[in-house]
């Protein structure tokens, strides 16, 4: 019974520590509204697409992406990178081309560090004169970026293999040291 009491005391200490440590407000974002709206019909192409979330989005380079795919499912119609302003993420649009369904795909980083992705659709009723973004621009906005931070990167499996080796070495060390007991 005494031991149980001690265990509960340990729990209580940890609980108090939690409460004093409770961190900043962090949450999982949800899309609240968009311009143009989901499943809306527009007669002329919008100059920007805006996505409004219920909570602020984590701003940062390459953390948030918006891609607008045209009726052919291939061509991309956004111009440049997504811009974050508090809980609104927007991207400039090229003049749109053929009439039909456009799909706005997004992946944003919520304040809790989880990435949230989804899409909204809108329909262009009257064809415009625009052309989709050229391939090199698409690569620059959504593909692998050649930013300085990425130099010297290695594939994920190398990291995992490294961790396994580290773990193995740790276990070996621990058993050697622990094994010294008589």
């Amino acid at each position: 019974m005494r031991a149980l009491g001690r265990g509960l005391a340990a729990l209580a200490v940890a609980a108090v520590a939690t409460i004093s440590l409770a961190g900043p407000a962090l949450a999982h974002n949800q899309l609240v509204s968009s311009t143009p709206g989901d499943k809306a019909s527009v007669s002329t192409g919008p100059s920007t697409v805006e996505l409004t979330f219920d909570q602020p989005v984590q701003a940062g380079e390459n953390l948030n992406t918006i891609v607008v795919v045209g009726p052919d499912g291939q061509g991309q119609w956004q111009s440049g990178k997504a811009v974050v302003k508090s809980n609104v993420v927007s991207v400039a649009m090229r003049p749109l081309g053929p009439a039909g369904d456009y799909r706005v795909g997004y992946r944003i980083l919520s304040a809790d560090g989880h990435s949230v992705s989804g899409e909204v659709k809108f329909t262009l009723t009257a064809a415009g004169t625009g052309t989709p973004a050229p391939a090199d621009e698409v690569a620059a906005s959504s593909g692998p970026a050649a930013s300085g931070a990425d130099e010297g990167g290695v594939p994920v499996w190398v990291w995992i293999a490294g961790a396994v080796v580290l773990l193995g070495a740790g276990v070996f060390f621990a058993l050697r040291v622990g094994g010294g007991q008589t």
């Binding site: 953390l63 304040a111 931070a149």
Partner: peptide, 26 residues
């Protein structure tokens, strides 16, 4: 490391990127 990689699809992960992740994401 995996959470860093999740945010940068299609890219390799460098130590600087992991550090950057620690800096920006709770």
């Amino acid at each position: 490391v995996l959470q860093t990689a999740e945010l940068r699809p299609g890219k390799d992960v460098s130590a600087a990127a992991v550090w950057d992740y620690v800096g920006t994401v709770g």
